[in-house]
Design a protein around this nucleic acid. Structure first.
Length: 431
RNA sequence: UCCGGAAUAGCUCAGCGGUAGAGCGGGUGGCUGUUAACCACUAGGCCGGGGGUUCGAAUCCCUCUUCCGGAGCCA
């Protein structure tokens, strides 16, 4: 009994093999029975013929229901109807458990029902495909960083203070130390890491207690923050572009089946693997106004503006040099214009929105202190951060990639809630 | 938090003043090539909760609850 996975059937044609998995669907027509088996690596049609299986085993196999678990032995052969694919000629079927009436049917379902059944929904082909793309994107990011001298430097999730001070944090009691908060970004800690390791990154869940209710927001999401010493603004954007283009190529190379299941336009992804556009914030506003937007200079881009801006652009667009008022305290002033900061947002095509936020950091102690005072930040909580500007300060830059948004773009998934196994949103914490 | 929309069978929906419907899923039977298989039969309902209007309400009005979509904030 040779145990194999569905993905490997092509290598075992004509040879008796055993597979284990679940029933995606089952059909029978008299003495013929078709079981669509899935095992995590793929799907395989298993064909059982009553005279070959014997009446007893055939009748037992007919009692399998959708999502029943089973062990099936047979011989892989070319599919009789679909050229280029394979099917299993069944010798024996053994059920492990007969599934009860499965809640998720073959017809469409509403999002509320599916999210309430997320623990089962993840078995569906599109969810399977998205989660596999998530895996590929995650490791592509790590691969690129590891190959470009970045060292993994895990930042804490429990923190004594806010990173940027702007967004609402989840708060909890921390023994006798008072309040602690769930991290919304590991960035400030990463800035300490570069003074030891040169280039560092972290990758983990971060938390925002904002009452955001859009297809681009979760309260718990995964972010990769990278930070590099001696890297200035323009070089940082180049690093971001190289990283994202590597992810695109890796997803195209490894996830062809998944992209097909999701009906993702692969040519559009291929086209995105080209030099990214760079616009200043001022240029972006001018462009948007020329296209009919009501946006004014000095304002942040709304969701509709992001769509309008990237319309017709095959590649993502960097928006750089933002007004200092609407960006975080730690961003470095533009030496050519003190009203601007050397920050950039990377906007993905097709309305998938901002996938990276990055900037060169303020490395001058006094300018940083002045900015923190202006923001009325509790300075005693940030002495360690200010220390970095006292002991060998260097120019440095960093950026944060939102994993789910990147996966949404790669997979062509409209709503970010499908790009993480168990999405956390303001009105949903189950399952 | 604000602005829209929705709630009817397990699921997706139709019905929009006059006896509660379909498809899928479930059950029973039929079929040797099915692809969300097909065919026949069958079970399954406090029409989201509360209040009103009416001879009569799933249907009209008020209210509450829940969910969805969008905005803002951001990745």
């Amino acid at each position: 009994m040779k145990l194999i996975f569905v993905k490997d059937v092509a290598a075992h044609l004509g040879e008796e093999v055993t597979l284990r998995g679940w029933v995606r669907n089952i059909r029978h027509s008299g003495k013929l029975l078709f079981i669509i088996l899935r095992d995590g690596t793929g799907e395989l049609q298993c064909v059982a013929f009553q005279p070959e299986l014997g009446e007893e085993m055939f009748d037992a196999a007919k009692r399998l229901t959708m999502e029943s678990s089973l062990i099936v032995t047979g011989i892989p052969k070319p599919h009789q109807k679909l050229a280029g694919t394979f099917e299993l000629s069944v010798k024996s079927v053994k059920s492990i458990q007969i599934a009860e009436e499965y809640p998720i049917g073959k017809k469409e379902h509403g999002p509320d029902f599916l999210l309430s059944n997320r623990h089962l929904w993840i078995r569906s082909p599109k969810q399977w495909a998205v989660l596999r793309i998530r895996h590929t994107v995650y490791y592509a990011i790590c691969d690129w960083l590891n190959n470009n001298d970045f060292i993994r430097f895990d930042s804490p999730i429990l923190t004594p203070n806010a990173c940027e001070g702007s967004t609402t944090l989840f708060e909890l009691e921390y023994f006798d130390e008072g309040k602690a908060y769930l991290s919304q970004s590991g960035q400030l800690y990463l800035e300490t890491g570069i003074m030891s390791l040169g280039r560092v990154y972290d990758f983990g869940p971060v938390f925002r207690a904002e009452r955001s209710k859009t297809r681009k927001h979760l309260t718990e999401f995964w972010m990769m923050d990278a930070e590099a010493a001696f890297v200035e603004h323009a070089e940082s954007m180049q690093i971001q572009e190289d990283l994202i283009r590597y992810v695109i190529r890796d997803v195209l190379a490894k996830c062809d089946t998944e992209l097909t299941i999701l009906e993702r336009d692969k040519a559009a992804l291929e086209a995105a693997d080209a030099p990214f556009k760079i616009m200043t914030h001022r240029e972006a506003i001018d462009y948007l106004r020329s296209k009919g937007s009501e946006i004014t200079h000095g304002s942040d881009l709304g969701a509709a503006d992001e769509v309008l801006l990237t319309e017709g652009s095959p590649v993502p667009i960097f928006i750089e040099k933002w007004p200092k008022e609407i960006k975080a305290f730690y961003m470095k002033r533009d030496p050519d214009n003190p009203d601007l900061v050397l920050g950039s947002d990377l906007i993905a095509p097709d309305g998938f929105g901002e996938i990276i936020g990055g900037s060169q950091r303020e490395d001058d102690h006094d300018l940083l202190l002045e900015r923190m005072k202006a923001e009325k930040m509790p300075l005693e909580d940030y002495q360690w951060f200010l220390d970095l500007r006292k002991y060998g300060s260097v120019p440095h830059s960093g950026f944060g990639v939102g994993l789910e948004r990147l996966v949404a773009w790669m997979s062509g998934t409209h709503h970010i809630r499908e790009t993480i196994p168990f999405p956390r949103m303001i009105y949903r914490i189950y399952p």
